[in-house]
């Protein structure tokens, strides 16, 4: 990442700005669903507006997370081979876990 400082910085801020309202919305939604069963959660997730906001939220979240972890790796891991391996795993993790989350909300809203 040593030559990608500025794009990294900007992307981290853009995702942070997107995450402020979406995180607040997500937290309020979760508070509203304390004690909900699967049917109620499913109905909430199936709602088109919920799904749309969640899609933006999840993309920003997994992008932001990957950037933040990249910074930690760059700061603390001196060995270049270890650093490359951890950077690879970081992107891999964000894509797999983010992909699963994204697929889940799409499949619910598109089949409901």
């Amino acid at each position: 990442m040593s030559t990608k400082g500025t794009p990294h910085f900007i992307a981290q801020r853009i995702t942070a700005l997107l995450l402020i309202p979406t995180i607040i919305w997500f937290l309020i939604s979760m508070v509203g669903h304390f004690g909900s069963d699967r049917a109620e959660i499913y109905a909430w997730l199936a709602n088109r507006t919920t799904a749309m906001v969640l899609a933006v939220f999840l993309l920003a979240l997994f992008f932001h997370m990957r950037l933040g972890m990249q910074e930690v790796i760059d700061d603390y891991i001196a060995n270049p081979d270890t650093r490359s391996m951890l950077s690879f795993l970081n992107t891999f993790f964000a894509l797999v876990i983010g992909g699963i989350a994204f697929w889940s909300i799409l499949s619910i809203t598109l089949t409901a």
């Binding site: 699967r38 499913y42 979240l61 997370m65 889940s104």
Partner: peptide, 13 residues
Amino acid sequence: GSILLAAWLAAAA
């Protein structure tokens, strides 16, 4: 914690 979020959404689906 994102693993838990993804697991929860996947389980709902």
